[in-house]
């Protein structure tokens, strides 16, 4: 067990000029990004609350504390682009512009949910919006990104596929096969490693013999970028740069956003592998408060965003709870097209 709080300094490997980025985004979009981060936080806090009250059938993987990655990355993408993400995926899905009602309905296993209650927390997809789904298998979406990239190239549509996975996935064999294939064919894919520093209980420091996961990019002959994953503008800048490279036909980039998961891996996690001090220290780097501070918002002004997010989530819970359960007579549907 680690007794030393893990408080690594995260240095951006690309220049991140906050003032310049805020000017480019404009204040309205920046505030909307903050609102989305608050919505993700509110959704997951509510999910946790519903679970604690015994109202959730399955488990869940919360990304509280990681909101800057989801929002910064998705804002760097364009309409029509593709998303593949991972099991800790509520945030990416919401940031992609998904309907919070349909997400909550899916979370509660209702027929009105994005996947008719068949997928649940780990498998939310919205193919109509080119959200090709969260994945319950660590690294499972990474090989799929190769096909999406090939398809974009063949159809000549200039789309980009944002593929988000965790630090654990970077140690799967499929990561190696896929990044190599994407590189040799210059596929329009952004590989975003959302490094929250623990693969369940395995700390990154024990699972890698390198300082930065983005160092692996050199093995594939592609750029590697590491940024502070609790700085939404840094993530935005990195993914935007990677997406521009992809869209212009120059191939994939491996972006690493270093962040921290405030909650356990899933609901069965007692977190014996890290100290409370470490978690508390990382909570001081709250991505929402940091961004609100950067935008010059007061506590009261931030509270307005938070309560608006909570209101939307409460409405979503009401929608989901009023929604019908899937009818057992439909159980066989949807296996084959």
């Amino acid at each position: 067990m680690s007794t030393q709080p893990n408080l690594m300094v995260i240095e951006n490997t690309i220049p991140v000029d906050h003032d310049q980025l805020l000017t480019e985004l404009g204040r309205d979009q920046a505030l909307d990004m903050l609102a989305t981060m608050c919505l993700i936080r509110a959704f997951e806090e509510k999910a946790e609350d519903l679970f604690a009250r015994g109202m959730v059938h399955g488990t869940m993987h919360l990304s509280i504390g990681q909101e800057a990655v989801a929002v910064g990355a998705t804002r760097a993408m364009q309409k029509g682009d593709y998303l593949l993400n991972h099991h800790r995926g509520h945030g990416h899905c919401l940031a992609w512009g998904s309907d919070v009602n349909l997400m909550m309905a899916e979370f509660l296993g209702k027929e009105t949910g994005y996947c008719r209650g068949r997928g649940g927390s780990m498998h939310i997809a919205n193919v109509e919006a080119n959200n090709l789904g969260a994945n319950g298998i660590v690294g499972g979406g990474i090989p799929i990104s190769v096909g999406v990239g090939l398809s974009i190239k063949m159809r000549r549509t200039h789309q980009v596929c944002l593929t988000i996975f965790g630090d654990g996935a970077a140690n799967e064999g499929a990561f190696h096969e896929s990044l190599n294939m994407a590189s040799i064919w210059d596929l329009p894919v952004v590989y975003l490693c959302e490094n929250n520093q623990y693969a369940m209980s395995m700390p990154m420091t024990k699972a890698f013999n390198i300082e930065r996961i983005s160092q692996r990019a050199c093995a594939y002959g592609i750029p590697g970028i590491t940024v502070d994953g609790n700085d939404v503008l840094a993530v935005y800048a990195a993914v935007r740069q990677a997406a521009e490279r992809a869209r212009s036909g120059q191939g994939p980039t491996l972006v690493e956003a270093v962040t921290y998961r405030w909650r356990g891996h899933s609901k069965s996690d007692r977190q014996a592998y890290r100290t409370r001090e470490e978690v508390k220290a990382w909570q001081q780097r709250d991505p929402i408060r940091r961004f609100a501070g950067l935008l010059g918002l007061s506590e009261q002004e931030l509270a307005v965003y938070i309560s608006e997010a909570q209101r939307k989530v409460e409405a979503a819970v009401a929608f989901a709870q009023a929604s019908p359960e899937p009818d057992v007579s439909t159980i066989l549907e949807g296996v084959y097209a």
């Binding site: 090989p143 096909g147 499929a174």
Partner: peptide, 18 residues
């Protein structure tokens, strides 16, 4: 020589219209 990659390539391309 990447059999997981080949299968993944088929899936991703199939999901997106090929």
């Amino acid at each position: 020589i990447s059999e997981a990659g080949i299968a993944g390539a088929c899936i991703g391309a199939a999901l997106t219209g090929m």
